[in-house]
């Protein structure tokens, strides 16, 4: 606990409404984009693009609406660790299901 205020560690960043409006419009554009893209036949790329757009939207929500961009290092670490473990669990489970019946599809 130092006497110096460390602004990067400071909890009470107030995000301005301008930022929220910009994020709102980005999310709306993302939604329009993903609906539009879903009607075009891109073969195996359809789910990839849908998930990529969904993830970009989720990132915007996490970073700005949820304020992780301006939060403490502890919160950032918590969020990153959570996503990492989640992706680890999903990829291990899916790789198990996919490799178990290898060659017997």
């Amino acid at each position: 606990m130092s006497e110096q205020t460390n602004h990067t560690e400071h909890e009470h960043h107030v995000t301005s409404p301008t930022v929220y409006i910009v994020i709102l419009f980005s999310l709306l554009v993302g939604t329009a984009l993903t609906v539009w893209a879903s009607f075009i036949d891109l073969g195996p790329w359809n789910p990839v693009i849908a998930l990529a757009i969904a993830t970009s939207k989720a990132m915007l929500v996490v970073l700005f609406f949820m304020g992780v961009k301006y939060s403490t290092k502890l919160t950032k670490l918590t969020v990153i660790a959570g996503i990492f473990i989640f992706l680890g669990l999903i990829s291990m489970t899916l790789s198990d299901y996919m490799s178990r019946a290898w060659g017997r599809w």
Binding site: S38, F39, I40, N46, P47, A54, A58, V61
Partner: peptide
């Protein structure tokens, strides 16, 4: 909201074409 963003993509969109 984030959960819905993924639900929308996975349930409604990915097989739409």
């Amino acid at each position: 909201d984030i959960v819905w963003i993924y639900l929308f993509a996975l349930l409604y969109l990915i097989s739409r074409h």
